[in-house]
Design a protein around this nucleic acid. Structure first.
Lengths: 222, 222
DNA sequence: GGGAAGGTGACAGGTTGATGACAGGTGGCG
DNA sequence: CGCCACCTGTCATCAACCTGTCACCTTCCC
């Protein structure tokens, strides 16, 4: 798989490269939109990781131009945490998924795998675990294919748990996912865990606590 | 840096030692695969120089066993002749590089430096011992790559033991690590050793007491 | 045997996580 | 605007777990 990373922060670019290369991918890095656009015109990639917030231009234009040419290469957008607008307009402009900084490498890998899988087999990139699924494209969770109406925070929590499906989602990661850097001043995370637990009761799924570490989504049957 | 040399030819072993020690490394030499394997089970090295053609066993098996344990210590293979087969299967079995005898010391040094640099840069300064690993970056311990939920004090103790992997961790060092200068007024260390032992039971690892000295983490199999 | 070092079960007190309740906020709708 | 339903973060309270201590036992060594 050939991946193209368009990201100006050398540190982030490097960690992306180091995370994705071991999965058997060739990773190409460019630090400006101009270079990235040129690469996309002359070359074929299986996935593009695009940072919108680069100094030299509008990432959305790059994306729009790509789609106008009929190029359907999957694009995963990287945005700063609070830029919800970016995310939405990114998806509008034809992005396939988004990732808010800061993100964990596990999260990144999960998304990249999902996108690559989809582009290979035309299957969807929904995150699944047991009877649960989460579709990043529409931002909706579902249980047995029937949509779940979850409040925003609980949705974020569920998504965070699904991204770490099978392993423990660290407290800090979940906290950052729900509250960003807003430094919520109490046991808010526990509250949302509790609320989500209540909703999951009867679904055969449960959230297990790992003291000092975090939480893990589990099949109650196990 | 700690280097392990497994090589039966005393002359070669000596010249390896003499070439590598001046670079600031501690070099341990063993002349059989059996001894080398034992050393690798009980101790942590930054690099292993492994001669495949030893009379007492198959070096590839040693290498395979090492990787099966999840040990990613860099291994540089030495082979007698320009045996391409050995080289290929060595790399297949998880070796990081290969050197054919006879080799120049300059070449050896260059390869060793490259491997050490790479392993350092891997920012993977996890401590390992057998199936156990501890990542100082996240402050988490794991067994076979699944995180262990350990209370703080037991985690500190485990970390202390891993820091001295292969050798005896002195009592006072461990006490200082667990309790700082708080001068705990009883047999608290023994209590935590006992608790950690209980948790390690069934993992194939054990904590052995050295009266008047301290404790050492050991592979129960040995 | 006797003394010293270490091992371990039990316990009180502290800390972390879980959960119900509540007040303020937000957005829809007349 | 006023009402209502619902989402959010905080707190009080409770449960689970961690921590250090002690008592008493085992092991080692003379």
């Amino acid at each position: 798989m050939r991946l193209l990373v368009i990201e100006d922060d050398a540190l982030i670019a490097r960690s992306l490269e180091q995370a994705l290369s071991p999965l058997g991918n060739t990773v190409e890095v460019f630090t400006t939109h101009g270079e990235g656009a040129a690469a996309l015109r002359h070359d074929r990639f299986d996935l593009v990781l695009l940072d919108l917030g680069l100094p030299d231009g509008d990432g959305l234009e790059l994306l729009a131009a790509l789609r106008d040419r009929g190029d359907t290469t999957p694009v995963l957008i990287l945005t700063a945490r609070d830029a919800v607008d970016d995310r939405v307009s990114g998806l509008d402009h034809g992005a396939d998924d988004y990732l808010a900084k800061p993100f964990s490498l596990a999260e990144l890998e999960a998304r990249v795998r999902a996108l690559l899988r989809r582009s290979q087999q035309r299957s969807d990139n929904r995150l699944r675990y047991g009877r649960l699924a989460f579709d990043p494209a529409t931002g909706t969770a579902s249980l047995d294919d029937t949509p779940l109406a979850l409040p925003r925070r609980e949705l974020l929590l569920l998504e965070g748990l699904l991204l770490h499906a099978g392993s423990i989602a660290p407290r800090e990661v979940l906290e950052r996912r729900l509250f960003g850097f807003d430094e919520v001043g109490s046991n808010a995370l526990e509250v949302y865990v509790s609320r989500l637990r209540k909703r999951l009761s009867g679904t055969g799924l449960q959230i297990r606590t790992f003291r000092g570490l975090g939480y893990r989504l589990e099949d109650a049957a196990a």
